[in-house]
Write a protein that binds this DNA or RNA. Sequence first.
DNA 1: TATTGTTATACTCTATAACTATA
DNA 2: TATAGTTATAGAGTATAACAATA
Lengths: 138, 138
Amino acid sequence: MHDPLSHYPGYSLRRAANATAAELAARLSDIGLKQVDASLLLLIGANPDVTASALGRELDIQRANMVPLLKRLEDGGLIDRNPLDGKSQGLVLTADGEDRRKEALAIIEAFESALLARIPADHRHHLLPALQALWRNA
Amino acid sequence: MHDPLSHYPGYSLRRAANATAAELAARLSDIGLKQVDASLLLLIGANPDVTASALGRELDIQRANMVPLLKRLEDGGLIDRNPLDGKSQGLVLTADGEDRRKEALAIIEAFESALLARIPADHRHHLLPALQALWRNA
DNA sequence: TATTGTTATACTCTATAACTATA
DNA sequence: TATAGTTATAGAGTATAACAATA
């Protein structure tokens, strides 16, 4: 089949993102996490007492959609909530949450290494800056 | 906020893909198309009498999910179906579909140029081969 | 007046199973 | 026996509006 799409960087970007996301999802499912869960654990671990709203802004997730995500982590005993004032709540990892964060981190590091290894060496170190230019100048 | 995620190529890949997909979607909405519609018009235009199943394989879309996508294009008068044998139907662009394909192509070319222009020149030509290595060796 | 957390809801996209008919 | 097209359905993920309480 003639393929008029694959030579477009934007198309390949979407396809590569989908393919790699599926791979990471499969690896993270071994420890019962989704991608967004792992992102939240890493962010909360690096920013104790962060609020749900701030996490949503960081990850481009609507406030309303954070509720079930955090509820799942809380029900799983991975995070706790500290009232900061009458309205905001600071999120922190529990001991179990910290353990799971470390497991997720190991999986992510291995996954990222595998990604880079798949890229020919002469292109490898150009990927991150190119992607960041696309994303952060959007 | 401390950010433990953005230095990962895989994470930046997802973020860049989401950001750029939103941008292309906005541009294509000017001519009443979604991204997948444009992909289908380009593929059908380049492969007259292609089947729905073959398109699904090319784009990684389940056979069942092709049905409403193609129905929408057909209802919009952009594609026609030619019975190839008793079971397969070849898809072709109508005259309107060919016009719309050309419009979509112009939008996509402009979008892709804008993407590349946003990448620093020394990284620019490394993006496509790096992405293709990630996607096609998945 | 803006922000936080929340509920409810709708919409899109995707995945799965099943069925018919044909190659 | 495998493939094409289809239907129905369920599950994610996401977007929007609205509300109460607080900064």
